[in-house]
């Protein structure tokens, strides 16, 4: 197995799948301002996807490009976290997921700016500024809704309870993680777990939300063993145009 390729697919697929989910809000946001903010986040993530999958395609060396990887792979080829593919459900769950992801992604990308692989370090340096803004925004929304009315607090607590069994998948390490740590491309995700948990505790406390107990985490997304049934539907929507009209161009 090419561990660097595997690592890059995980980076790119996380950004792609979450970006696609966020883009589903376009035109449906609860307020015009939030709608634009959600679309901006989606575009940031798709931009990051181009960089990660572009590099992945080079490393693969099979004559494919970022578009081929995004649009011509099937669900079992994807390496994204399961949490990112579950449906948006409502604004509260969408922003809670964004927060849980951003809280890991910011320190993760910060660490990757010191990567032994200069391309990884460059992509991380560009992405981390966007991720910091995403975290700023998702944190304030989680607090505003958690510390809002009884109804909004209920939405956020249910969102947290639903997402919790998915939240820690990133810490379930495998041979690729160890290989990347070995050569200094990326740290072990588990080395950031303490920091991640601290961010969660501070924000959830301020939001009057209760962190669920238990460390159980669904696995299979990032290692590509099994996805939820939702990924296939997401890809069907995302990929239908380039698959139906392979020669289509702008």
């Amino acid at each position: 197995m090419n561990h660097l390729l595997e690592f890059l697919l995980r980076q790119g697929d996380n950004a792609l799948v979450l970006g696609q989910r966020m883009s589903e809000w376009c035109g449906h946001g609860p307020a015009l301002e939030e709608d634009i903010a959600l679309a901006n986040t989606a575009l940031d993530l798709i931009g990051q996807t181009q960089l990660w999958l572009g590099y992945a395609a080079e490393v693969e060396g099979a004559g494919r490009d970022a578009n081929d990887l995004a649009f011509m792979r099937d669900a079992y080829d994807f390496r994204n976290l399961l949490m990112l593919e579950v449906p948006n459900a409502d604004f509260g769950r969408t922003l809670m997921r964004q927060f849980l992801f951003d809280a890991f992604q910011v320190p993760w990308l910060q660490a990757l700016t010191d990567s032994a692989d200069p391309r990884v370090a460059e992509i991380a340096a560009k992405s981390v500024k966007e991720a910091m803004y995403h975290l700023d925004r998702s944190t304030s929304t989680v607090i505003a809704l958690g510390d809002g009315t009884a109804e909004s607090n209920g939405f956020m607590q249910r969102a947290l309870d639903y997402l919790w069994p998915y939240a820690a998948e990133v810490f379930a390490e495998d041979a690729t993680d160890f290989a990347m740590a070995e050569v200094g491309v990326a740290p072990l995700p588990s080395s950031l777990r303490g920091q991640w948990k601290k961010t969660l505790q501070a924000t959830l406390q301020e939001a009057h939300l209760t962190m669920p107990e238990g460390e159980f985490a669904h696995k299979g997304g990032r290692i590509g063993v099994r996805h939820t049934e939702h990924l296939g539907h997401l890809l069907a929507t995302m990929q239908v145009l380039p698959r139906s009209y392979p020669d289509a161009s702008w």
């Binding site: 301002e33 939030e34 901006n40 700023d136 925004r137 304030s140 505003a144």
Partner: peptide, 13 residues
């Protein structure tokens, strides 16, 4: 604060 964030997203894209 929310207004500044929204302004960032609406007017400085």
């Amino acid at each position: 604060e929310h207004a500044i964030r929204n302004a960032r997203d609406v007017y400085t894209r």
